[in-house]
């Protein structure tokens, strides 16, 4: 049974349509990504889930609650990490976590939470003195301190350096391991690909596709490309006639083989049978980014037609 159901959500600010028509469901225990470019309507969508905004039309149900009319109950079970939300500059890490813990009926143990998020050493550090990564960890701690069933994380790693981003990703996986369902808003393809079980691609206030990262990639690109330099001369036709291969071209000493299915296995075993080793072997697969460009591009073409 889904824990979040969004059906035909529509929200406008004045004459600007922020969310045109968005529907999706989030299952218990998964990391559900909402991926799209800036201004696609991602944040507005999750703000309707968090009860911060009232939809103009459509319905949102979170754990059986209506975020607008059952806001009081909703806030006890949904933890939020807001985009660009800060804390008073002089509050310490421990004070902030203690304070937020006091807001909830069954809070997590602040000391344990700090330890889990690697904030124990920083417990007496003021918010303004924290690094970007530490601020985000504190922000996650505050989203989790009420022991929520669902955590909504909006643009979690924006502005973080690569190491802090990777650390934050591990943290999100740890949170999910505690049984918390996670809704992750991001415009980073690599983040979505790495973390999400399923994703909704949103563009221009509409859902373009919902699938697993691999499923989305598979929709646009079934082909893979192998590039290698054979250790000894080899007739191209040996590869070109293989069942999975669609194309073989040469680029100087390198061969570029395009194909589908179990292409790497087929090619490498065939080469081995001819006593050829594939040197400098590289495999290119479509990424989520390719999928996104292809999917949104196609959607735009359809509208134009």
């Amino acid at each position: 049974m889904p824990v979040i159901e969004v059906t035909n959500l529509h929200k406008r600010y004045g004459t600007t349509v922020a969310v045109d028509d968005v529907s999706f469901t989030v299952e218990e225990g998964e990391i559900f990504g909402i991926l799209g470019p800036n201004g696609a309507g991602k944040t507005t969508t999750v703000e309707c889930i968090e009860g911060l905004r009232r939809p103009d039309s459509g319905t949102v149900t979170v754990l059986g609650l209506d975020p607008t009319s059952d806001r009081g109950q909703l806030r006890q079970v949904v933890g939020a990490q807001l985009q660009e939300s800060e804390l008073p500059e002089n509050i310490t890490v421990a004070e902030a976590i203690d304070l937020y813990a006091s807001f909830y009926p069954n809070p997590a143990d602040p000391a344990e939470l700090m330890a889990e998020l690697g904030l124990t050493e920083k417990r007496d550090t003021r918010f303004e003195k924290l690094s970007g990564g530490q601020k985000q960890r504190l922000s996650i701690a505050l989203a989790l301190v009420g022991n929520p069933k669902i955590a909504v994380l909006d643009e979690l790693t924006t502005g973080l350096d690569p190491q802090a981003r990777r650390d934050t990703w591990q943290l999100v996986e740890k949170v999910r391991a505690r049984g918390v369902t996670i809704v992750l808003v991001t415009h980073f393809m690599d983040e979505a690909e790495r973390l999400c079980d399923r994703l909704a691609l949103i563009d221009g206030g509409r859902v373009v596709a919902i699938d697993s990262p691999a499923g989305l990639i598979g929709r646009v690109a079934s082909e893979q490309t192998l590039r290698f330099r054979p250790s000894s001369p080899l007739d191209e036709s040996v590869l070109a006639t293989l069942p999975d291969v669609t194309d073989v071209t040469r680029d100087g000493a390198h061969y570029i083989v395009t194909g589908t299915g179990n292409l790497p296995y087929t090619v490498v075993t065939t080469l081995a049978a001819h006593d050829v080793v594939a040197a400098e072997l590289r495999m290119d697969q479509a990424s989520l980014e390719d999928a996104f460009v292809a999917l949104t591009g196609r959607a735009l073409d359809v509208e134009a037609a």
Partner: peptide, 14 residues
């Protein structure tokens, strides 16, 4: 507090 989203952050808590 309002400018920095501190009040808004609080409104997601009980």
């Amino acid at each position: 507090y309002r400018e920095k989203g501190i009040l808004r952050r609080l409104s997601t808590t009980p």
